[in-house]
Simulated scan of single mutants.
Amino acid sequence: MTQPRIRVIADNDYSGDPDGLVQLAHHLLSPSVDLRAIIGSHLRPGDPFDPSERTGENAAARAQEVVDAVGSARAPGSPRVIAGSNVGLADARTPIRSVAATAIVLEAMRDDTDLPLYLACGAGLTEIASAWLMEPRIAERVTIVWIGGPEDPDLASPPPGHSEVEYNLAIDPIAARVVLEDSDLPLWQVPRNAYRQALLSTAELDARIRPRGAIGALLADSIDRVAEFAGAAGLPLGETYVYGDSPLVLLTALQSSFEPDASSSESVLRPAPRLSADGVATFDGSGRSIRVFTRLDLRLMFEDLFAKLARAAR
Rank of each mutant, 00 (worst) to 15 (best):
S276P: 05
D50F: 14
S289W: 12
E127R: 08
V145M: 01
A313P: 10
T143W: 04
G88F: 06
E239I: 00
A262Y: 00
G122L: 02
A59Y: 06
L205C: 06
R62Q: 01
Q23D: 05
A103W: 10
A227Y: 07
P153I: 06
S246N: 09
I128S: 02
G216H: 06
P273Q: 01
D34M: 07
A25C: 04
L180R: 01
D152R: 04
V87T: 15
A198M: 14
G149F: 01
F302T: 01
E266W: 15
R314I: 04
F302M: 06
S41C: 15
F306S: 11
G234L: 03
A69D: 11
S52H: 13
L250G: 15
L119G: 01
D278C: 01
L169M: 02
V99M: 13
A176H: 07
R196Y: 01
S32A: 15
L185Y: 01
R137K: 12
P95I: 00
R212F: 03
R225A: 14
Y243E: 06
S276V: 01
A37V: 00
A156G: 08
R36N: 05
L29W: 12
A120Q: 07
A123P: 03
P173I: 12
F258H: 15
G287Q: 03
D11T: 05
V99S: 11
R291H: 06
R177N: 02
F49P: 03
G56A: 13
A233W: 05
T294K: 13
V178N: 03
G20L: 13
S85F: 04
L305Y: 02
L119E: 00
D304F: 07
W146H: 10
A207Q: 15
T202N: 00
P136Y: 06
P45E: 06
S32F: 03
L29S: 11
P236D: 10
W132D: 13
